[in-house]
Design a protein around this nucleic acid. Structure first.
Lengths: 182, 182
DNA sequence: ATCGTCTTCATCCTTTCGGGTGAATTTCAT
DNA sequence: ATGAAATTCACCCGAAAGGATGAAGACGAT
């Protein structure tokens, strides 16, 4: 199920096969640059010069004229430049959100700490939220926690904002959905 | 995590760097032919050759030896190639898949009809209860059911009596406990 | 036809909830 | 130590919820 989703995801972006390839290219660059890949360039240049020298000795170069010779060099190194640039170019990053289904087992309740921290819900707010989920009124919660009614109201108000809820019933519903309360 | 997978994926194919390079070249060439930028390149090459000819005529070229001359050309055209590639390459896109967790309970809800009849909850009251459990306000429930706010308040009041609840949050809590609502 | 339940709606009144704002104190990490 | 976040509490005000009661139409069972 999970893998299928990802599969679809990828297939949807199959038009961008090239970009995946590009990612790979970037990867390769990293490897090269890390491992003295400039040597490659130097070696190729040196090698070319060596070949040229050999050709010069053979009196083959100037038979066709200096222009053609220079032109070849130019073409070759242009290609080299393009090749290098392709390798060295940094890719733009595109972020795709994929929804992953997480099935919650109902018997043992395990608090979802991730969601808690993500939503920025504090300890005290969680206390209020738990009692709220039990069906207690703000006054009863205040009694339970030994704080004033106003304090509970402040906490609950903050909770509604953090849980993006309009009412306490909605807040409880969301909290249960997210595994914040039992 | 996802990107890591891709990383591995591509490193496996790093042996085929050359073929990728060829593909990329084709890409670049394609781009050139399409966007008439090739003219720019041709002109620049021709211009360079012209300058070279001029230099040759001035007997400046061979004073420093053919190797340095060739080297300069190589460097220059490498730079040109890089510049061209940067100008003409399609933007590289790195796709990063980010998983967002969506929580779903795997046990399908089965309504407890026995409790429903035992508590004497009517059909309409159940409607109200369900929407109430979703976190809707009385006003919103009234809209949903095409009845007046007063009607909803009556139903909810009756529900509180039948469910032995003081508040709507308590009623929801009990109803869920008894399997009356999801 | 009559009884009982369901559904609908109303009015009056009280309590609770929730928004907005401000502020004092504590806790905690930099 | 200093600034940010958390905790606490207060006051005001409007909106929503809830309690109590009455009542009218619909609908099925006796």
């Amino acid at each position: 199920m999970q893998s299928t989703d990802q599969q679809f995801q990828f297939e949807r972006f199959s038009v961008q096969k090239l970009s995946y390839f590009v990612v790979d290219m970037n990867q390769a660059i990293h490897f090269l640059s890390r491992h003295k890949h400039s040597i490659l360039y130097g070696v190729s240049l040196a090698g070319l010069l060596f070949v040229l020298k050999w050709l010069e000795l053979k009196y083959l170069i100037f038979n066709n004229g200096i222009e053609i010779y220079i032109g070849s060099i130019a073409l070759l190194f242009t290609a080299l430049g393009i090749w290098l640039a392709i390798r060295l170019m940094k890719p733009k990053i595109k972020t795709v959100l994929v929804e992953k289904e997480v099935y919650i087992s109902n018997t043992p309740f395990i608090r979802n700490e991730k969601e808690l921290t993500r939503l920025g819900i504090s300890k005290r707010e969680l206390d209020v939220l738990q009692l709220m989920a039990k069906g207690l009124s703000n006054g009863e919660i205040a009694e339970q926690l030994y704080v004033s009614l106003n304090t509970v109201k402040t906490h609950s108000s903050n909770l509604f904002v953090k849980l993006d809820a309009k009412r306490r019933t909605q807040a409880i519903e969301k909290a249960k959905q997210l595994g914040i309360v039992a």
